[in-house]
């Protein structure tokens, strides 16, 4: 009985993508109320804009380092550290392509009247939503038709004197006025890429529901390979004033939820205005970095046993992020996790480290694979038992360490 509770079975076949027939729409539902839209993996076969060449896992992990470093830097900055006003110790190679490369989940929305279908990445780590607009002088190619403001009867650009534009400037995302006194925005990401255009509003269609006066950036120029695939834009779900979640809070409710599909060939959902019952809840911690949603991780359990990690190691809090791929832990916590996990994996030979992963195994010829359970314990005694997909990625423990306990 103890063994059954403390181990999980990982089938070797689950480490590889299966052939899937995407012509069969998969049932998408939320366990709660609100407006629900399907959510797909960006690079999966069921993506509305499937990648012609998906990045390798190694490349994704490399990009993930920049995402994590950017969040840490930005958070540290607003909390009194140097933040992104100081030279970063992360030098971004010019071949990186995009700091948005770690975003993996897409929703399809309609913008305008009549609604024009647009495929958008979701991101809980930023607030300003944007979509490529016609005319776009420096934009990437996209699968859907370019959103054309002139074809929408409900589109309007915010004047510079509007409160929305003032608020945008206060959040450091204003970018002056156009010659026609239209409010200009700028979004910047971790690799120095950016997008600019006109801050606007239009009708947003989500499934069978619609939101009037949705505020977003009408992107007219991008630099630094903002996106490298066929997606049309980004939907910010952060905690700041401009995010979709904040904008719909008054009409749909001050909550949203998502279900991230476990594999690229399966679907999940995003629900805005979610009912909040039936969840194990921990306190949400906010800071002066409004986009970020914080939680307090208190302990880690491996194989049902709590690791001996001083609570102070976790005192700097953790950010819940849909756009970071791999969970980052303070080194002291990661070392304890890695050691305990290895102890429970003695039957499998170690394998070479891969990128940011240093706890890897050789599963050749073995199936099924028994792995120790891993649970995260958050404040209030909330225990989140991770699925096998959240413990092992490829053949490695899917966690990484920060550079030091104080970072």
């Amino acid at each position: 009985g103890d063994n059954l509770r403390s181990y999980k079975v990982l089938h070797a076949g689950s480490l590889k993508s299966a052939t899937v027939n995407c012509s069969q729409p998969k049932a998408v539902s939320s366990s709660s109320g609100g407006v629900t839209v399907p959510l797909h993996h960006r690079h999966g076969p069921c993506s509305p804009v499937p990648s012609t060449e998906a990045p390798t896992l190694e490349e994704m992990l490399r990009r993930d380092q920049f995402r994590a470093a950017y969040i840490t830097r930005k958070y540290s900055g607003v909390m009194g550290g140097a933040g992104d006003v100081e030279q970063s110790d992360v030098t971004v190679p010019t071949t990186l392509g995009t700091s948005l490369g770690t975003l993996e989940y897409l929703i399809t929305v309609g913008i305008g009247s009549p609604a024009m279908t647009q495929t958008m990445l979701i991101d809980t780590g930023s607030d300003v939503s944007w979509v490529q607009c016609k005319p776009c002088s420096q934009c990437h190619t996209q699968a859907d038709s370019l959103f054309d403001p002139s074809s929408s009867s409900t589109y309007s650009a915010f004047p510079c004197s509007s409160s929305a534009c003032t608020q945008l400037r206060q959040s450091q995302q204003g970018n002056g006025c156009s010659s026609g006194s239209q409010c200009q925005y700028i979004v910047k990401y971790g690799d120095g890429s950016s997008g600019t255009g006109t801050y606007s509003s239009d009708k947003l269609t989500l499934g069978s529901s619609s939101v009037s006066y949705f505020q977003f950036g009408c992107s007219q120029s991008e630099s630094g390979n903002l996106l490298e695939d066929q997606t049309d834009g980004l939907m910010g779900l952060g905690g700041g004033a401009q995010s979709l979640a904040t904008q719909t809070a008054g009409t749909l409710g001050k909550a949203f939820s998502y279900c991230l599909p476990p594999t690229p060939d399966s679907s999940g959902f995003l629900t805005l205005g979610a009912a909040t019952s039936g969840f194990a809840k921990t306190q949400m911690l906010r800071s002066s970095a409004p986009a970020y949603y914080g939680v307090l991780l208190e302990a880690i359990r491996v194989g049902g046993r709590q690791l001996n990690i001083p609570a102070s190691v976790f005192s700097a809090k953790s950010i819940m992020d849909s756009g970071t791929i791999i969970t980052r832990l303070p080194p002291t916590a990661y070392s304890a996790l890695s050691a305990a996990f290895k102890a429970g994996m003695k039957q499998y030979p170690p394998a070479q480290p891969m990128g940011i992963f240093d706890t890897c195994f050789n599963f050749s010829g073995q199936s099924p694979i028994n792995i120790p359970s891993v649970a995260l314990v958050f404040s209030g005694g909330v225990v989140v038992d991770l699925a096998t997909d959240g413990i092992i990625l490829d053949s490695c423990l899917a966690f990484a360490a920060n550079s030091d306990d104080s970072s």
């Binding site: 840490t72 194990a280 950010i319 992020d321 966690f399």
Partner: peptide
């Protein structure tokens, strides 16, 4: 600062209850 990444969130419905000041988890919901 730690970051809870999306690999660890897979198969869990994650709730951002901004009004209620809570983050919720529903395991096996996906």
């Amino acid at each position: 600062l730690g970051i809870i990444g999306n690999v660890q969130q897979r198969t869990i419905e994650v709730l951002y209850d901004v009004g209620g000041g809570a983050v919720g988890f529903k395991a096996g919901a996906c």
